[in-house]
Simulated assay, not measured.
Amino acid sequence: MNEIKFINVGYKDAENEILKGITMEIPAGYIHTIIGPSGAGKSTLIKLVNRLIDPTEGRILIDNTDIRDINIIELRRRIGMVFQQAYLFDGSVADNIKYGPMLKGINNIDVKHYLDIVGLDASYMNRKVDDLSGGEAQRISIARALANEPEVLLLDEPTSALDPASTQIIEDLIMNLKDKLKLTIVWITHNMEQAKRVGDYTIFINNGCLVEYGVTKEFFANPKSEISKLFIDGKLTKGEVA
């Protein structure tokens, strides 16, 4: 089990109310795509899940435990995150994949195993990260996250900077990981076609509010909200509210 619950979650910074009253349950073992206009609060939402920031209102639970009651280092091992740009440490591919387990005192990690998972062969182990293509670097960042054996994987537009071929590789990889490792995956995307392809469920956020959340095929075929319809059709005016 790795169900995530949001209970009336809000977030304000010094100047703006970014998220408002988010309440939803994210069931375990599926890919949940988050869509919405730029500035809607999508990245803020997933940063709350592994406590890069904390909500200013409400609670977030994983397996019915408030995430603030979980040691933050343990929480971030359980909830991996991959960003839009692949942020890799200086050194080799193996150095990056070994990093998380070594912090736990595990020094005999099988780097090849994690390379296999992301579809790269053992020849990459000693490659310097500066020598990787964008798609290869993103796959290594996923391998590094997986080396901590997370229950949840958060993806903040992981393919937006990649070419179509690399994007397809990452999409296939993530869908395979869901089935193979039974991960709960939360994936932000601006690409509607990608959301349709990869998402089991779709979460639509606008102006910091949860507008609609449901099975992806049903969401795109029969959106319940007029705002959702406008967004799907590319006609949503900035600032328009539900």
Results as ranks from 00 to 15, higher is better:
residue 35 I to E: 07
residue 90 D to I: 00
residue 168 Q to L: 13
residue 233 D to P: 00
residue 55 P to L: 06
residue 242 A to R: 01
residue 39 G to A: 09
residue 104 K to T: 00
residue 8 N to P: 01
residue 101 P to F: 02
residue 49 V to N: 04
residue 119 G to Q: 09
residue 45 L to Q: 05
residue 232 I to W: 09
residue 127 R to I: 06
residue 95 D to T: 05
residue 98 K to E: 14
residue 191 N to S: 11
residue 66 D to G: 10
residue 212 E to V: 08
residue 185 I to V: 15
residue 196 K to T: 10
residue 72 I to V: 14
residue 88 L to D: 03
residue 229 K to V: 09
residue 79 I to Y: 06
residue 120 L to C: 08
residue 159 T to A: 10
residue 105 G to K: 00
residue 231 F to P: 03
residue 232 I to C: 12
residue 81 M to I: 15
residue 208 G to C: 10
residue 87 Y to I: 13
residue 231 F to W: 05
residue 34 I to R: 07
residue 145 A to E: 07
residue 14 A to H: 00
residue 97 I to K: 01
residue 114 Y to C: 02
residue 200 D to S: 14
residue 86 A to Y: 11
residue 43 S to Q: 12
residue 69 D to T: 03
residue 143 A to K: 00
residue 57 E to D: 06
residue 233 D to M: 03
residue 35 I to F: 06
residue 20 K to P: 03
residue 149 E to N: 12
residue 173 L to V: 07
residue 14 A to R: 00
residue 88 L to N: 03
residue 71 N to F: 06
residue 70 I to F: 09
residue 132 L to H: 04
residue 227 I to G: 02
residue 178 K to Q: 15
residue 69 D to P: 01
residue 62 I to T: 02
residue 112 K to L: 12
residue 77 R to Y: 10
residue 191 N to W: 05
residue 3 E to A: 14
residue 29 G to S: 14
residue 229 K to M: 09
residue 156 D to A: 08
residue 112 K to N: 15
residue 107 N to T: 01
residue 4 I to H: 08
residue 37 P to C: 02
residue 167 T to W: 11
residue 64 N to R: 03
residue 28 A to Q: 15
residue 99 Y to I: 01
residue 205 I to G: 07
residue 106 I to F: 05
residue 146 L to D: 03
residue 140 I to Q: 07
residue 117 I to T: 10
